[in-house]
Design a binder for these strands. Structure first.
Lengths: 220, 220
DNA sequence: AAATATTTTTAGACAACTCTAAATTAACTG
DNA sequence: CAGTTAATTTAGAGTTGTCTAAAAATATTT
């Protein structure tokens, strides 16, 4: 049985592997988990012994196949619980993360599969992230940052890169949610802020900061 | 924040206080939690310092008012999750306990109150036990053991004293569930086994063992 | 390439929770 | 009530996961 601690390491390493190619370094893990690097070194050695990570001292770590499977299962649980919280318990998308951080460590496999069924086998969580299947497969739709889009583009919001409460609440205030259709009407040379139209509502201006945290898909 | 360990001690002590009046002894706690008595002694000292229990060495322990409140909150969570598992995820009543043992430690107060609402503010869990209210109040309906009833009594099953998987599955096999109406048709002098009628089904015989683990309410 | 800076690891320690073995206190028994 | 038994506590130790401070390895800069 994996400890909650191990599960958190697995998840962190998985996320870091997604972010950049190649080995994940000790400091990055330490930062993500808010731990000291020396603590992480210790843990990596233990996890290497358990065959959860490949670890080369001074170089970095990678998940083994077993580690990757475990990480995906945790992410599956996390995202399914988020869907539950939003759809069934009326939580808003900025409130679910912390609670799901706890729920994801509940071990029962039966529970999570029944929950999946109860929710109607959702494909994405409230932030637009794909939910891994029970067998560990995950379909990653290619997404672009709104920031990369040219004037005139029409896109659909498919996810957020940042899930901090503050950012999500800001999106709510702007009237942007998952699935919103956005037309890019202008980009300021000065600060790259964007004038956008959100489904016929009055035009608003968003900062480059916002645009570079919004994942979108081009509409045909 | 209370640790999972502390929460388990609180719950165990609460249960033991319900079972017999007066001080709860170290050995009883150790047995319930499957720990060694020396471990329990250590923990009781720590919990006394945190004002969760009153503890007199060599005598025993009692919950403080604060400890009692915490214990009731944990029990509230446990029972609400059990209802969720049975009503929404189609678990059977013998499967829910272990999973609820994990879920009861999820901290979010918001979560549990919304879950309560989602479930329609249930009053009892799948084993007939009362669910404490958010403010910590618990209404304990007076219940009797079927074992105590005389021939000719007509009663309604209101709970089980034992929630082990084996016992619950045996009840399923006998056709006994929460709310079943039972008529006591005979009691054998030899072994106190009972002949009973369950809602018009053919008469069955149950052992004293079964009868002394079934909580019932007399019908008028 | 040598010097400096950064990253990572090692060494030693601590808190929480558990154990075994031995000592102590309380309870029972003849 | 003295002796024995049972319950409880104390003492010392182990595991997991964390830390700080110092040492070692790697990377960067001039």
């Amino acid at each position: 049985m994996r400890s909650v601690t191990e599960e958190n390491y697995l998840k962190a390493i998985y996320r870091l592997m997604e972010e950049h190619e190649g080995l994940v370094n000790t400091n990055a893990i330490a930062e993500k988990l808010e731990l000291k690097p020396s603590t992480v070194t210790d843990m990596l050695k233990k996890m290497a012994q358990k065959n959860l990570v490949h670890y080369s001292p001074y170089k970095g770590a990678l998940l083994t196949e077993e580690g990757r499977k475990s990480a995906l299962l945790i992410i599956r649980k996390h995202r399914l619980w988020e869907v539950f919280l939003v759809e069934k318990l009326q939580f808003s998308w900025d409130e679910v993360h912390e609670v799901a951080e706890e729920l994801e460590h509940i071990t029962s496999g039966r529970l999570i599969n029944r929950l999946d069924e109860f929710l109607g086998f959702p494909q994405i969580d409230p932030h637009g992230d794909a939910i891994p299947a029970a067998n560990g497969s995950i379909r990653q739709a290619k997404q672009t940052l709104l920031y990369e889009m040219a004037v005139g583009s029409i896109v659909q919001v498919s996810g957020v890169k940042n899930t901090d409460r503050q950012f999500l609440q800001h999106l709510d205030k702007l009237g942007i949610s998952l699935g919103s259709t956005i037309t890019v009407d202008g980009i300021a040379d000065f600060d790259k802020s964007m004038e956008i139209l959100i489904e016929g509502a009055p035009e608003v201006r968003i900062s480059a900061e916002v645009a570079s945290n919004l994942l979108v898909q081009k509409m045909n």
